[in-house]
Design a protein around this nucleic acid. Structure first.
Length: 488
RNA sequence: GAGCCGCUAGCUCAGCAGGUAGAGCACCUGACUUUUAAUCAGGUGGUCGUGGGUUCGACUCCCGCGCGGCUCACCA
């Protein structure tokens, strides 16, 4: 089959026609043609000759003996073309009939008309082959369904499945929205190292790499957090970064080894006003991308209309998890509950705070369908967050949950270098126990000693947000080239 | 990493109590100058993911391996 196409390509060359020519000047996009003339009726075209010169990939051909309809598509639109033997140079008709297939890329010149079914169509007067495609297109009706093939050959997926294009357009719009929203609020976009000698800011395992000239072990960043806060120390009061993080963990419908995070920090702020800012940003995002506060996700309906529900972690266990206050007021009782639930990875030595967080993850998180802020996280699970002055066992932290999953995480930053040093020491100990690379980030402590103003910061998982906005079940549906094992 | 499921033509899928593979689209030939999954007639195309085993005979049954999907775990 490919040989047919190869034969055609060779014959074109023999005839002196370049099957990969680039000398056709594309006058306008298909979308422009449709925008200008999509509203004109049959009479208009009968009385006015409208020239059309455009180019695109042939996506379907319906061929007759001495005529054919075909549809071409460029990056912005699609239009039907009609070619017939009469009235055009013989070699153009022959080129089309004998040597061109669906999948080829061509330039056409002609004029517009409406068919008897009233479809805007280009009557072709000359045709040029710009790229001969050597592989056939997936089936016109079912498209490309094989999930593995869709990811490995995303270019075919994008040709065959138009809804996939829409997902990635929405992804781009989402990122653009975040940028312009933050820019409008006086944030400065920055870029911080992705290769770090001491990966910090989160607890995940990092990817290792190596710099030859310096003979230096480096890690791909797991978070930009510690660098962004150094910048706030430096006097950039509002900074944000949108970029890739790398975490050497398992892969699932919600996890890809590289993923995109938005992190932003505001000096002279604290977590409650940050939460309101996030609420405003997220609700406006939904409105902008989906045109509505209410969106459908799978079988769920999500309502982004502010205000979002806000509830303390402990209260959520009672109100949403259905536990009684006295059931969860000490570590031993919570440990028993978790043991009965066969929860893995818990230990008698875990603190009440740690156990409550685990219990929350298991029982409450899946039930948080509409956007919900959970606040007052235990100190133990929040090593970079500021303690709550009124209750030192919890931090000034919130997480945003939507559709039963974590979407954002924000808090008042811990800016006491002595407290931070203590917590880092504990963190390093735990990491070493788990066999993870762990080193005290002395420079970060020094930065705090220099003086970090009271600051609040937040991270939002862009991929997961895009999943919600595009009703995508898997994170791989919103990443153009998700990680796959190589074949063979 | 574990459990379950899948892998057949370029694409979408059938098939099998184990007897040597089929359809539609695409492609080729012919007919057809306004089609909308165009239509009609004929045709080409497959180491049935891979390596073993059982058997006279394996796409089909059994085991290993590869890749993928889903669920779970680590994580966001």
């Amino acid at each position: 089959m490919e040989n047919n196409r190869l034969d055609k390509l060779n014959k074109l060359k023999e005839k002196g026609i370049n099957p990969f020519s680039n000398d056709f000047e594309k006058k306008e996009n298909i979308k422009n043609i449709i925008e200008k003339f999509g509203g004109k009726d049959k009479d208009f075209f009968e009385n006015n000759r409208v020239e059309a010169e455009t180019a695109g990939r042939i996506i379907i051909i319906r061929s007759f003996g001495k005529a054919a309809f075909f549809r071409i598509r460029d990056g912005f639109g699609e239009i039907q073309c009609y070619i017939q033997k009469d009235g055009i140079p013989e070699q153009d008709f022959e080129l089309f009939k004998e040597y061109m297939d669906a999948g080829d890329i061509c330039g056409v010149k002609g004029h517009l008309f409406r068919t008897k079914t009233d479809e805007l169509t280009i009557k072709v007067e000359s045709i040029h082959i710009l790229t001969k495609s050597l592989l056939s297109l997936p089936e016109k009706w079912h498209g490309l369904k094989d999930i593995e093939a869709r990811f490995r050959k995303r270019y075919v997926d994008l040709i065959a499945n138009q809804e996939v294009r829409e997902i990635f357009k929405k992804r781009a719009e989402t990122i653009r929205f975040f940028r312009s929203f933050l820019d409008a609020n006086d944030f400065l976009e920055v870029e911080t190292p992705m290769m770090q000698a001491n990966p910090g800011g989160a607890t995940a395992r990092p990817f290792k790499t190596h710099h030859n000239a310096l003979n230096l072990e480096l890690y791909m960043r797991i978070a930009p957090e510690l660098y962004l806060k150094r910048l706030v120390v430096g006097g950039f009061d509002r900074v944000y970064e949108i970029g890739r993080n790398f975490r050497n963990e398992g892969i699932s419908v919600r996890h890809n080894p590289e993923f995109t995070m938005l992190e932003f920090y505001t000096a002279y702020s604290e977590n409650t006003s940050l939460m309101e800012f996030v609420e405003k940003m997220m609700s406006e995002l939904a409105l902008k991308i989906c045109g509505n506060y209410e969106i459908e996700y799978g079988t769920e309906k999500l309502n982004f209309k502010p205000p979002f529900k806000k509830i303390k972690l402990k209260d959520s266990l009672i109100e949403i998890g259905g536990f009684k206050t006295e059931e969860i007021d000490d570590a031993e009782k919570v440990f028993d509950i978790l043991t009965k639930r066969n929860t893995p990875g818990i230990s008698k030595t875990d603190s009440l705070g740690e156990l409550l967080t685990i219990l929350f993850d298991e029982t409450v998180e899946p039930k948080l369908i509409n956007p919900t802020f959970i606040t007052d996280y235990p100190v133990e699970s929040s090593p970079l967050a500021r303690r709550n002055d009124k209750d030192v066992s919890v931090t000034e932290r919130f997480e945003l949950f939507i559709a039963g999953r974590e979407i954002g995480n924000g808090f008042s930053e811990l800016n006491d270098p002595l407290d931070q040093e203590e917590r880092f020491k504990m963190q390093v100990e735990t990491k070493i126990k788990e066999g993870l690379p762990a080193e005290m980030d002395d420079d970060y402590i020094e930065a705090l000693k220099q003086g970090l103003p009271p600051t609040a910061g937040c991270g939002i998982g862009i991929d997961r947000v895009v999943m919600l906005l595009t009703n995508s079940h898997s994170i791989r549906d919103v990443i153009l080239f998700p990680l796959l094992k190589p074949v063979k």
